[in-house]
């Protein structure tokens, strides 16, 4: 049976809060008093959950983190590392959250009804993150300075709004679906997995990608010359989303000897993709 802990902020924090201990794994098996004593960092200062939040929930949490739901009745874009390494259960935020939401997450699900900031689902290995608002930069990405392939390794991220730059930077596996627009450099340094952008994207999607699949259903600002045009497809279906319009398939990025698949909507990028059409049709002859 799933139990719910409802957390509501006593005050809105003015500085970033390291809330990595707000996860079902940390709550599991603890009494309510013990949960209230879990330490967070507000700025550099230690603060207990009970001092920052009013907590309403059962006296004792179940042993299995999968049976715990944490409900943040009010979000704040200062709350970082929410759901850090969580292995099961569910976190629902009825508002915004900060950076690194679901960092290194292994299972369970996070639903954010507002917006998230940078590095949402960064380095996650499993589970689901759903953002009803917008997400920041480096969605499902690796950290700055790490090798390609150190990003997201599994699981699923769904963003219903827009996403910032460098979606899925260095991702290895897993799925990212963005129903709105995405920023520049979608899937940079990508080594596997799937990114689907239903809306438009910025410049240079798929820069330095080795493998994986990027589908962009809207307009793209420009494309790198290191992608080979492969075919024109009448329609594309990716991760349950069907686009009933013609797409052009590119393979690249040749700079790194990659074999990644980049699907760009031909309908929306006629001016950009017109020159490639002749090449693709010429090959057939």
């Amino acid at each position: 049976m799933v139990v719910t802990y409802a957390l509501s902020l006593k005050y809105v924090p003015a500085v970033l809060v390291d809330a990595r201990r707000i996860t079902p794994d940390q709550f599991a098996g603890k009494k309510l008093d013990e949960i209230k004593k879990i330490v967070l960092l507000e700025g550099g200062r230690e603060v207990r959950i009970g001092e920052l939040f009013d907590i309403v929930g059962p006296e004792r949490a179940p042993e299995n983190p999968g049976d715990i739901e944490i409900l943040l009745k009010q979000g704040s874009n200062k709350l970082c590392y929410l759901g850090y390494r969580m292995s099961g259960g569910r976190i629902v935020v009825e508002g915004d959250v900060g950076h690194f939401t679901g960092y290194k997450m292994r299972g369970g699900s996070i639903v954010v009804k507002g917006n998230t900031r940078n590095y949402t689902g960064s380095k996650m290995r499993g589970g689901t993150i759903e953002v009803l608002g917008d997400a920041g930069h480096k969605l499902g990405g690796k950290l700055q300075g790490e090798k390609p392939g150190k990003g997201m390794k599994g699981g699923k991220i769904i963003v219903h709004g827009r996403a910032g730059a460098e979606v899925g930077v260095g991702m290895k596996s897993g799925t990212i679906i963005i129903h709105g627009d995405a920023g520049n450099l979608v899937g940079v340094d990508m080594q596997g997995g799937t990114i689907v952008v239903v809306g438009n994207a910025g410049i240079y999607p798929g820069t330095n990608m080795y493998a994986g699949k990027i589908v962009i259903g809207g307009k793209v600002e420009c494309l790198l010359p290191s992608f080979y045009a492969d075919a024109i497809l009448p329609s594309v279906k990716a991760k349950g989303i069907r686009f009933d319009k013609s797409f052009m398939l590119f393979i690249g990025d040749a700079i790194v000897g990659g074999r990644g698949l980049l699907y760009l909507s031909y309908e929306d990028n006629k001016a950009l993709l017109e020159p490639y059409k002749e090449l693709v049709e010429g090959m057939r002859l």
Partner: peptide, 21 residues
């Protein structure tokens, strides 16, 4: 400068007045 990833999640906040971060 070369290794920003070396500094992630290794932070230890200060305890003033006797220890810096």
């Amino acid at each position: 400068l070369l290794r920003p990833e070396d500094h992630y999640l290794t932070n230890k906040p200060h305890v003033l007045p006797h220890r810096r971060a």
